[in-house]
Design a protein around this nucleic acid. Structure first.
Lengths: 146, 146
DNA sequence: CCACACTCTTAGACTAAATCTAAAGTTGGA
DNA sequence: TCCAACTTTAGATTTAGTCTAAGAGTGTGG
């Protein structure tokens, strides 16, 4: 694990500070999609002491170098995701949970046609719907009677 | 136009207040992807006087009823998008511009396989890369030399 | 091994986005 | 008309994220 992170840092040329290491390690270890605040608390709780600003700095550096990906969630604190493996996301309308989905390919031709002259670096796919827990009625049903 | 909005409201059963109308009208008329703040200023500038909270209320009601879609942008105020027509999005890494792309279909089977038992309501696709303006060097190049 | 330049981290102030609250205004149905 | 439910309002409040200035860490040339 240590080595995996070492390599990741080496590969991207990003200087590895203890703080950056801890942030990335947390994201790799915990597959949920944490907010900056959660990471801040979690890492501080364990060993290292690091400031809020450092969490943001580290996250930005990691995103910049591609080791971490921001998961865009509307109307809430953004979440982050170590992406040493490719995957898509599913967000539940009702409870807001973010789940990982297996990677599936895209219609590259159609996509490039739509993109026109733009240089595409990455594609982000998010499915929205109802997660299995919510579908089973584990959470309160939507207020609409209709 | 008026009628189009009328119909949209009727279709969803959402009560049409002047404020909601104005917010939706702005989004339909201006194809850029506005923030709540922009809408607040724009609508107030013209005719109606409406409070910040109302803009948020209206946007949430509209999103709820499907007339408007939030465009999740990490690390910035969320933007909104009247979607009476289907399309995807492109976000420029460098300048942050959000552009609409022509709709293209997805590999439905693979997608459903990845989704497993989850009920999918919608799919959101966002391409990331460099927009044409930035590619032409109209903005400062990235600091990396590498 | 030291000095210097550079990068990173820190605490806390600050800004901006979004929500909450309590009161007043609308609306439609009985 | 009257009532109950819903909507809007202004402004306070909460929360996310950035900024700043000072200090610590790192690495390279001497």
């Amino acid at each position: 694990m240590k080595e995996r992170l070492q390599k990741a840092f080496a590969r991207t040329g990003l200087r590895q500070t203890p703080q950056r290491h801890d942030v990335l390690a947390w994201l790799v270890r915990h597959k949920r999609h944490s907010t900056a605040e959660e990471i801040f608390e979690a890492v501080n709780r364990s060993n290292q002491r690091l400031s809020r600003a450092t969490v943001y700095n580290a996250l930005h550096a990691l995103v910049e170098s591609g080791l971490v990906r921001p998961v865009a969630v509307e109307g809430a604190a953004s979440r982050f995701d170590a992406t040493l493996d490719r995957h898509h996301h599913f967000i539940c309308d009702r409870c807001g949970a973010i789940e990982d989905l297996a990677w599936f390919g895209l219609p590259v031709k159609a996509m490039q046609a739509a993109a026109g002259g733009r240089a595409v670096r990455d594609v982000e796919i998010t499915l929205h719907g109802t997660c299995e827990r919510c579908a089973r009625g584990k959470t309160k049903p939507p207020p609409k009677t209709e």
